[in-house]
Design a protein around this nucleic acid. Structure first.
Lengths: 226, 226, 226, 226
DNA sequence: GATGAATGAGAATTCATTCAT
DNA sequence: GATGAATGAATTCTCATTCAT
């Protein structure tokens, strides 16, 4: 009995369990999702789950890792070939808002248990994984600062917190009063707008307008009167 | 055996349970805090808890209500007598950041179970209570818009989400790398700065753009026709 | 609803559980006796067992302590008022043989898990308890040595091992081919006989021979010449 | 790929499993040694164990048989060419003490499960096997009795129980306070000494000496003073 | 008002065993 | 011969909840 894909039976089972667990954690949270739920969802026996993942927290670990891996891959994909850091930031924030709206519950499970799990591996792994994501954003913010688009007086971590925190709260609101994709993208744009406008070096922007004006004055002086 | 305060014995017991439960939920989260923990902390038997609060979720309900009531009271206190809405916003954000850093775990318990509890009363109540808090912020933001300090193009709920979301993420970061009170207050200031600067109506920059355009018109006039 | 004895309900339940557990461990051994078995035997729910004893190994601990306490008490009772150490030893060995025949399985559970339990309390406690018992025997052996009835060349611990080991093996044999109480008491006597005869200082038998010879000389002197 | 010995692959696998199982039972006891442990130790899959031995208790059966077979062989080897039965007894006891000290845990597994296994084959087989061993000792004791070195009043099974029981208890003590090989051999000698001295035909025994002495005293009283 | 005592309904985890390949 | 994969049946333990006193 062959399969088109080259997965072994075991591999397929693992995937089924992982998918079912992801769903279960999303729907019911970690503690209320039981291994029996997951087994049922994956159409395997509970014992099979333990054969593959060792423990419930081992399952969480892999759900987390797989989820972050995918997310990071999609994020890279989304910003590939985007021009400057500003454009990258726009894409990232949009991406993040949409993603967190879709998967808010899951993200919350990760952030809760990634911090407080009894299983130290979960904690360690979560820290690394989430750093992978936020680090990506911090890097772009750093580029923007280098380009002079973000002032020196505001710490980047704060902007990062604004991005991720606002994203989450939008998701949270969206859970109660659903919003269209367009609205969400717009919200993403506006967050970026807020950040760039609110944190741009203040003297400088007015300064450059002023500098333009000064140059125009020079042009005017050199031109004959109308 | 008298008591200076006029609480009955029952009332004192209720308070002890409430305090213990608050602590337990803060320390261990709702699911992992057991009624036995709470009973031990309050130095009463488990049965007494059920006499007073009927169920574990009933206990959560009262913890939540009592916490929000206190918080809202303190918030009102803090902004009492503050001048304009801008100043009020500053105070509120600073208050919120400090509060959420202190009680992040508890806030998370509320927000998690306020949304997903099996007990519908908890859900209903949470919605109202948190609206009470965010509504307070929205009102001030509305005032700022009326004063022309916030542009029409950015929805206020987004600014609210930025405030609350950023606050939470700062708290979250502070749990790993603790920050001094001064730093936190500064972060609060900067969030307000970001919001006000980033969302201020664009007349100002339009003003200088207009001035530039006027000058360009002059240039065009002085140049010979093509 | 009163009880003739002054035990509380809880106390009665504890006793019932203890009795049932003792029986279950005796009948099936520790690992194969389940907490469900014990609960059924005590006519309580499984949860009640855990309320009272905390864990299965906690239950074993108390079964062990209670059993040793009783046994030691009965032993003291049995040797109370017995004359010299030799008589005491006889009583003890007889007691021990009868006891171990009756409770061989239980003793084996203790000795197995008292040594290899994962629960360190069980191990510690077992060591103390069994020392209490064997110590009693060693003390009597020591007295016998002081009285010159046991030679210096044989270590007492060996005699102790003979007593306890032979007792167990008799019990073991009795499990296959049952023996009457009289037979068992006789076996006890014989073990003591073996020990006293086999380990008595060798000079002594020569001494008494010498004493006999001396007396015979006296007799000869008093008798008329042939 | 050749092998010097002529074992087939299957045979080699069987051996590896047997060795690993023996070790596992010794280290962890029957119940707590899992088939997974055994498989890991033998570097085969769990399924292979079942191919070869059918069940866990089938595995125990073969471990037991193989162990007793080896032990009996070594015992025969040890007493081969030893002179009289007394010398044979000495060798046997010494052998047994050393062996049981080394393999006390394993012996205990056999004796426990040989008696109480659910698998009747294990029980039957254990009975035969252990009879093979103790029978060997009984035979020698019988010879000693025939030689007049053991009195008629003490049953031989009791002496056998003393030998095996004392051996086990010495082993048990040695597990806590390790003893040198010399000490153990000495203990073996002393047990034999005890048995031979303690059970030798009673003509010379102290009881009759005492009785003789008593009669002499009577004679002396009836005789006139010298 | 308070509590000692008891419990039902799970929960995760273990483990010998089977079977298709 | 060997094994990867799967599983049924337990098993210990937890916890909110009830109720007689």
């Amino acid at each position: 009995m062959k399969r088109s894909s080259e997965q072994t039976r075991g591999e397929r089972t693992r995937q089924a369990i992982l998918a079912s667990a992801t769903q279960a954690f999303r729907d019911r949270g970690y503690e209320r999702a039981t291994t029996a739920d997951v087994a049922q969802g994956a159409k395997v026996s509970e014992a099979t789950i333990f054969n593959h993942y060792g423990s419930k927290s081992g399952l969480l670990l892999e759900v987390m890792e797989s989820y972050y891996r995918d997310t990071l891959l999609e994020l890279e994909e989304a910003i590939r070939g985007q021009g400057g850091p500003e454009q990258q930031l726009r894409v990232m924030v949009r991406f993040w808002v949409l993603r967190v709206v879709k998967d808010w519950s899951l993200a919350r499970v990760f952030s809760q248990h990634g911090r407080f799990s009894d299983d130290p591996q979960v904690v360690t792994s979560y820290r690394e994984l989430s750093r992978g994501l936020t680090g990506r954003v911090l890097a772009v913010l750093q580029n923007l600062r280098t380009e002079g688009k973000i002032g020196d007086d505001i710490p980047l971590y704060l902007l990062r917190d604004v991005i991720f925190g606002a994203g989450e709260h939008i998701a949270l609101g969206a859970a109660i009063r659903p919003r269209s994709q367009a609205e969400l993208e717009r919200a993403g744009e506006q967050i970026v707008g807020l950040i760039l406008a609110g944190s741009k070096p203040s003297e400088k922007s007015e300064a450059s307008l002023a500098s333009l004006e000064a140059k125009l004055d020079q042009v005017l002086q050199r031109l004959p009167e109308a």
